[in-house]
Design a protein around this nucleic acid. Structure first.
Lengths: 196, 196
DNA sequence: CATAAATAAACGAACATTCATTTATCTTTG
DNA sequence: CAAAGATAAATGAATGTTCGTTTATTTATG
């Protein structure tokens, strides 16, 4: 028996993300990836059954890591302000410290396997979020509202700002940098909107 | 002289959008489009210099129509509540009544010409928006804040809800339908956040 | 009849994937 | 402890297909 070269497998994953970010999904090919990783195209088909499987596996990898990170130190019994602050902090810290992964995830989300991959995140963190909202309403920290409205108000602004940052520019085409200051200021506005 | 068949040209545009929505950018090809429109691939190269030009032209078309619609009946001298309501109404009405165009625009925005196409929208409506915000601050209807923060608070939630609707499902994978009621409720929350 | 629209057929390049073979590493045997 | 055998990893070269685009030709109309 000959054992699989884990270094090689890891290199494939790393180069795949880089390729996705640099050239987008349409500029990504198995042959390019093989060349970039310095291996034979055929080897990719030992690691993955096909291109779809490769992209899906990569996406689920990213989703899982992102979801774990999001829930780090979070508890659905936290007060609204504290829990929301933790969520915003976790999400932004992760996306900002892993720009390649963040951009690759965005590319995959707009690929044929996008919905499937996104579902991994929501099924992992959805229940905790629902419980968190339920508790906040019970404690009169939060207006009663549809979950979708709550979600849009709390995360719409955050992801808009993070997208500006990852793109390096805002809607106005002017340079933009996300910062702790901007995040906290925006979060205060969101909290104000949610107060009963 | 023989004149160009405008029916054929229009059909190409229509089928191109449909193809983009149904199969995404990676599933779109000149040969497929030609077959779908019932013409020769070579004819496409009479209408457009190449694939890039076709996608770009389509994207700029959509951007222009969207921007015009957004500004319909809007005036930067409007009071904050009234102007914002008009903006939300215009944007949601357009996206909901043109789902194919809306989805195609999303696909193009994540293509190689995405930034270029998005810029058409922002250069068209950016100045009016900046003026609107400036006026609202002067009239003490709006806290002073970076334009990016204002934008993220006002449009982050709206587009999040519209995306749920266009996807037919929300983050929780549960069916979701945008409605006048949901929009107005969410807008009230946003206005509350913005109040000085 | 001139001219441009439209076409059918083809081009080389790149695509995802497969096949026949070689290479490395483990286990078995003497 | 070394040689032989077994097995899966890894490969280089090729498969047929589809890609964007071009060329030579036909068709319709001013």
């Amino acid at each position: 028996m000959r054992i699989q070269d884990e270094t090689k497998k890891a290199l494939v994953k790393e180069k795949a993300l880089e390729l996705l970010v640099e050239h987008g999904f349409e500029g990504f090919s198995m042959q390019k990836l093989a060349k970039e990783a310095g291996i034979s195209p055929a080897t990719l088909y030992i690691y993955y059954t096909d291109k779809d499987d490769l992209i899906r596996t990569l996406g689920i990898d990213l989703s899982t890591r992102f979801a774990e990170n999001t829930l780090e130190g979070f508890d659905s019994k936290m007060p609204l302000r504290e829990g929301l602050k933790k969520q915003w902090h976790n999400r932004s810290r992760y996306l900002l410290s892993h720009p390649v992964e963040a951009n690759a995830w965005e590319v995959i989300r707009h690929s044929p396997v996008g919905l499937e991959v996104a579902k991994v995140v929501t099924t992992r963190i959805g229940p905790a979020m629902a419980d968190f909202v339920h508790n906040a309403v019970a404690n009169k920290e939060l207006k009663e509202m549809p979950l979708e409205v709550y979600w849009s108000i709390t995360y719409g602004p955050l992801y808009t700002l993070l997208k500006f940052h990852l793109d390096g520019r805002s809607f106005a085409s002017t340079p933009f940098k996300f910062s702790e200051q901007v995040m906290n200021d925006t979060l205060e506005l969101v909290l104000k909107a949610l107060k009963p």
